[in-house]
Design a protein around this nucleic acid. Structure first.
Lengths: 201, 201
DNA sequence: TCTAAAATAGGAACACGTTCCACTTTGGTT
DNA sequence: AACCAAAGTGGAACGTGTTCCTATTTTAGA
């Protein structure tokens, strides 16, 4: 869209557009935080972001896109934080467990928000593939970094496979918790067991 | 509800009620099979099942309940079939892989239906906990039976944990496939890798 | 500075899940 | 056989995601 000066893959447009986008995502997170998935109503988001409904749909073509994009932004924050302050621990298993539990605890401290973002993620269809993929990459990279903190560039296929399996379990556990099928403690257990099964060294 | 003669946990009511329930689930599966999640519209289900909209809601309090109940019925069929013709294979890993691939292939032969049922399952909230739990039990029992075909009654906690992790991976893989993020081949790969990581003996 | 194109505002309209209501039918009890 | 409570019918109505349209404002380029 903008004629020059696009930094990379992402072209965020003018400052005004970046600002609108930010306002929309902020409004989304606020509403989700207060009332979960159902409270994120497109008219409410538009109003709170001080934007017309049509504009909201120009930026995000559906409620699911909107929520998954919000998830992506939150997740990028988490990933940055984790990169700045890496987890400690003697074994890969310990570090991964610590990293996941830290993240999980963060999410569980805002249950409504987590519910909204997780449900959106799980409900997303093919049209959201791009955003979903990015979130998946972030998760995998977070996990492999916890496995090999010192920039090992020797990631075997097995390493990546393990990270992906752990990611799957974590997502399932999160869904279980979000939908009230498992307690926070059980969620932690579930992750810990899986990691120990996969990373025994 | 019925005064006497309730066999067990499930009380399915009179023959007419069983028949209505069956007609509704049949209609659901037909519509899902043709057009996926979006095509399962409550008015359309009611019409095809020859039932009033209010009656449909009396039997199934929401679209999600309806679809998850349909999933449950389908899954029970699968589980029975698998019980009658157990998978063969020398190791637990082989048998589990075969069982999952067989099931996956069955689901992939009706993509729209699978999409509808899987999305409903992932979107379900706490109010569907009962049905979800039953499906989870079916899946775990299918997996442990593949792991120990000859009625081993010595299921350790680790065995169950492994089965659960495999189930999680399978679900994630299925979601990935349903939402067009991964191909059928990749889905099989993903499952196979996970099982081999977890069941190396 | 002026102008055409793009973006936004504001809001009506539509679709589908869900609820509700008035009326009718059914099935078991007396 | 008459009766009553439960179940079912048919359809209106409501909420929220989504689409669409016109008028206005902003932006980029000549």
């Amino acid at each position: 869209m903008s004629t020059a000066n696009s930094l990379a893959v992402e072209d965020l447009g003018s400052a005004a557009q970046r600002d609108r986008r930010k306002r929309i995502l902020d409004a989304t997170i606020q509403l989700a935080s207060q009332g979960g998935f159902d409270a994120v109503q497109m008219r409410a988001v538009a109003e709170r972001a001080d934007v017309a409904l049509g504009t909201l749909y120009r930026y995000f073509p559906s409620k699911i896109h909107l929520l998954v994009s919000a998830l992506q932004r939150e997740f990028e924050r988490t990933e940055t934080a984790m990169r700045e302050r890496p987890v400690e621990g003697d074994t890969a298993a310990e570090r991964v467990i610590t990293a996941l539990k830290r993240t999980t605890r963060g999410m569980q401290s805002d249950p409504q928000l987590t519910e909204a973002l997780t449900r959106a993620f799980m409900f997303a269809d093919a049209s959201v593939a791009t955003e979903i993929h990015q979130v998946g990459m972030l998760l995998t990279s977070m996990l492999t970094r916890a496995m090999y903190p010192e920039g090992h560039d020797e990631l075997t296929e097995e390493d990546v496979a393990i990270a992906r399996v752990i990611g799957d379990v974590w997502l399932s556990a999160l869904v279980g918790w979000v939908t009230g099928r498992t307690s926070a403690a059980e969620t932690g257990q579930q992750i810990e067991v899986a990691v120990r099964l996969l990373l025994r060294d």
